[in-house]
Computed example of a mutant assay.
Amino acid sequence: MHASVSNLGLTTDLLLHAQTGIVEALDDYIVVRTPDAPEYFFGNLLVLPRRPCERDVDRIEHDFAKLVGTPPRIAHRTFTWVESDEGSVDLNAFAKRGYEATVCKVLIAQPHHSRPVVTNREIEVRKFCFQEDWDAWSEMHLADMSNPLEITSQRYIAHQQTTYKRLIEQGFGDWWGAFIAGEQVGSLGLFFLQGMGRFQSVLTAEQHRNKGVCKTLVSTVVGLTANRAERFVMVADETYFAGKIYEALGFEPHGRVAALCHEPGSIATASR
């Protein structure tokens, strides 16, 4: 049985990918493909059975090309795996080859055991109801990207919007916004699969950070949807401050997931 079964972060990722793309167990891997979005780096990837070492790179790159794709259609390479619960993770050897590494905490909360927090009473939390909500969502997410004007970024955001709308239409969940005086200042997705509520893309607009938007949004949505899930799952970059916010709300660490992504145009060192 693949290790992802015991890691609720990766498990819920795969459950979502199975609704929006193709998920297959092949050889030693789980292969994720999103045929209509080849530029979706984390929708076209290999799930590895364990953390790779530098001597594995040529092999897993070869297998990625065979199982996921090659340029020009698939111009990136992405790998993910279940990481050990404790200790530092040294992936510097991959950075020298042009890969960006991330290690994320998987955080779990019980629906009726959230901690009381101080929320921002100016914030209205509601489901997305209008196309204007999604337009503001796209603008906010593009502004948070490193290259918002690139056509690949815009295609990615357009695909994500279409995908999330389709999941909502199929009854898997909703997208929620935080609004101050009618302006969207934050948002998140929450989708329900096999008794679990999985949060997606929690984001606060840069100019509205440090105003309690994230705490207000997450705690309110958990309260409003508590009867739909046995537990809520959140995945957060362990180097990013948001994880501490979620833990303050009652989310508890439940493992880690790591990933390597070599984006198109990433520059490898001469040793490559």
Rank of each mutant, 00 (worst) to 15 (best):
S6R: 15
N7A: 08
L8K: 04
G9M: 03
L10T: 01
L14N: 08
T20V: 15
G21S: 06
G21W: 02
V23C: 04
V23A: 05
A25G: 07
A25D: 11
L26I: 12
D27W: 11
I30C: 07
I30F: 07
V32Q: 13
P35K: 11
P35L: 13
E39L: 14
Y40G: 00
F41M: 09
G43Y: 02
G43R: 05
L46R: 05
L46D: 06
P49G: 01
K66E: 12
G69P: 07
G69M: 03
P71K: 01
H76W: 11
W81Q: 06
L91D: 03
N92H: 08
N92L: 08
A93R: 05
A95K: 14
Y99S: 05
V103M: 04
A109Q: 06
Q110H: 12
H112L: 14
V118M: 05
N120S: 04
E124D: 08
V125G: 02
V125D: 01
K127I: 06
D135P: 01
W137P: 01
W137R: 09
E139H: 01
M140F: 00
L142P: 03
A143I: 02
D144H: 05
L149I: 11
L149A: 14
Q154E: 11
R155Q: 13
A158G: 14
A158V: 12
Q160N: 14
T162P: 09
Y164R: 12
K165Y: 08
L167I: 10
I168A: 11
F172D: 01
G177A: 12
F179R: 10
G182E: 02
L188Y: 08
F192T: 03
G195K: 11
S201H: 14
L203Y: 00
Q207I: 05
V213D: 05
V213M: 05
C214N: 04
T216I: 10
V218R: 04
V218F: 04
L224Q: 13
L224T: 07
T225S: 14
A229L: 06
R231A: 11
D237K: 01
A242Q: 08
Y246N: 05
E247F: 06
L249T: 07
G250M: 07
F251R: 02
G255P: 00
L260E: 11
S271K: 07
R272L: 09
